Simulated assay, not measured.
Amino acid sequence: GVMVIDIGGGTTDIAVFTNGSICYTASLPLGGNQLTSDIAIGLRTPVTAAEKIKKQYGCAMISLIGQNDTIEVPSVGGRPPRVLSRQILGEIIEPRMEEILELVKRELYKSGFHDQVVSGVVLTGGSSLMPGVEELAESVFEMQARSGIPQHVGGLLDIVKSPIYATGVGLLITGGQQFGSARQLNSNDNKLFYKLFSRMKSWFAEFF
């Protein structure tokens, strides 16, 4: 069995797979937006700046950040930007990410399927791209963790080969298989597929 953790903007969704089927799902009201809010408050910077800092400099484990690493943080109220240690950012992100993963672990044990998750954890969603998330997940769950990269998709591989699009790709492929059009989903010139992913790309750009 394996557990998929989709860390999105507003929620973290969980799915436990055993014997090729989903046996448990749950959703937690925490995600990347909370990380951004924590950064904005902790560094006293606008939310838009906090989001950029999270994407560019965020790290989920302080131990992976160099002691001399610094970041430039925009101030509020027209004040000049400040240069701070990147470890301060890590001290904000790591506890929140650890909290999210601990809540997921609680849900896993609540499901009663924790003994069957022997193949580890697969991480998807925009926040899973952050350095240190895999290492932190392995520490929390005490099992192997890896990022979920969409596989067996043609045509737009350069766009969708990312954990951000893993859920969307899976839904499209499953839907295509149900309607007998899985072969079309792998076609380079499938206009509908391209149109759908163009829309998905813009949606994800807004939320992640």
Rank of each mutant, 00 (worst) to 15 (best):
K52T: 08
L35I: 13
Y109G: 00
I164G: 02
R146N: 14
I93F: 01
G31T: 06
Q184L: 13
M143T: 09
S139K: 14
L43C: 05
N33C: 07
T45H: 05
L103R: 14
V2K: 14
I88N: 04
S111V: 06
L101E: 01
D13R: 12
G148D: 10
Y165H: 10
K110S: 06
A15F: 06
F207A: 11
L30D: 04
G112L: 11
P150Y: 11
P80C: 08
N190E: 12
A145R: 02
R44P: 00
I159S: 05
G66W: 12
G155L: 13
E94F: 00
S37G: 02
L108D: 03
A145P: 00
S63P: 02
R44S: 06
N68S: 10
F193S: 05
K52C: 04
S111K: 12
R79F: 09
G66D: 09
L35G: 06
S85R: 02
T167N: 13
T70E: 04
G1D: 13
E107Y: 07
A15D: 12
G155K: 14
L129R: 04
M200W: 12
R86H: 11
G90T: 00
A60V: 05
S85F: 04
I14F: 07
G176A: 10
S147G: 09
K201S: 03
S202C: 06
L129F: 05
S187E: 15
N188P: 03
V133H: 01
R44N: 09
G20K: 10
E206N: 11
K191H: 07
F141V: 00
Q184V: 02
L89V: 04
F193G: 04
I39N: 02
Q151D: 12
G42F: 06
P95R: 11
F204M: 14
G126N: 10
T174C: 08
R79K: 14
G77N: 13
V118N: 13
N19W: 05
F113S: 03
K110I: 03
N190D: 13
A205Q: 14
M143A: 00
G168S: 14
T18K: 13
D189N: 14
Y194L: 10
S127F: 04
G77H: 15
L171A: 11
G154K: 13
S111L: 12
G175K: 15
R199V: 00
G77T: 07
L64K: 05
G176W: 15
K195R: 15
